[in-house]
Every structure is written in structure tokens, then in C-alpha cells.
Design a protein around this nucleic acid. Structure first.
Length: 123
DNA sequence: AACTTGACGAGGG
DNA sequence: CCCCTCGCCAAGT
């Protein structure tokens, strides 16, 4: 019996599912993922869940904070490792360690609707 | 069962 | 623009 423990990590799986869909050169914020999952999910918990992500199966580096910066801080990984990986994927960071979310922020299909300019439906 | 911690976000000064 | 505070919820002790 070793396949029943997967059922317990259902909460985390939802987060990983979205993160794995982030294409190369793109990023998402913790709050954005929390907003998509909604029920019981908050930026705080998403970050906590991401902390347990598999570095070989989940592109954890593509998840950054709302400021467009890496929040890893002084975690188990070397300083700014996340930023280094993203830069290798094509994401540009400024000297403040922040990138332009208006350019790199990505959303899964069905959740990108936010500023859809209606082509003058009646005029 | 209760308290504390944590890869966050928004608001106020 | 930077710093501080409150809210938010899961997991560890």
C-alpha cells in the first residue's frame, strides 16, 4: 500500500497542476494561482504548497510574488537561484531583481479573460 | 487541541 | 519608492 497516500496531497496537487502548465519564459504569481483555485486557497498557502513541489516535475521557478520578484530569500536553495533559472529561460530582471509582470505573467486557458476589449458590439 | 511558522497580498504611512 | 501591519490558511511542533 503506497498509492493511498497520494489522496492526502490532493490539496497540493491542484497547485502543482497549474504550475506544470506554465510555459517556458512565462511566470505566475502566488496570488494568481490562489485566485484560480479559490476555495480555501490563499497566496500564503499556495507558497507553502509550492515549497513542497518536486523540483524535477514542477517548474517552481516560474512562480514568483506579486512584485515580479523571487521570494525564495535565503531558503534551502542558493540565493537568487530562482532568478538565475528564469533568466536562462528568457525572463529579464532589473537590478532590483524584479521582472515586468505585464510581459511575463501567464494564465491558463479560461482564466486570461480580464481585460478583453469588447470590439464595439453595438457601435 | 493550541500556538507558531511560512517560497504572499493589499493597504496605509 | 520603501517600511510596517493585518489577513489568510495549511502543516509542523
Amino acid at each position: 500500500m503506497n498509492d493511498n497516500q497520494v489522496n492526502d496531497s490532493k490539496y497540493r496537487e491542484c497547485v502543482y497542476e497549474i504550475v506544470r502548465q506554465i510555459p517556458v519564459g512565462r511566470v505566475m504569481t502566488y496570488g494568481q494561482i490562489a485566485g484560480i483555485l479559490g476555495e480555501g486557497y490563499t497566496p500564503r498557502t499556495v507558497g507553502f504548497v509550492m515549497h513542497g513541489a518536486d523540483t524535477k516535475e514542477t517548474p517552481w521557478q516560474r512562480v514568483i510574488n506579486s512584485q515580479g520578484a523571487c521570494s525564495t530569500g535565503r531558503m534551502t536553495v542558493p540565493v537568487n537561484l530562482q532568478q538565475q533559472i528564469l533568466e536562462a529561460e528568457g525572463v529579464k530582471f532589473n537590478e532590483k531583481g524584479r521582472c515586468d509582470l505585464n510581459v511575463y505573467r501567464w494564465s491558463p486557458e479560461g482564466f486570461e479573460a480580464k481585460e478583453e476589449k469588447q470590439p464595439s458590439l453595438f457601435g
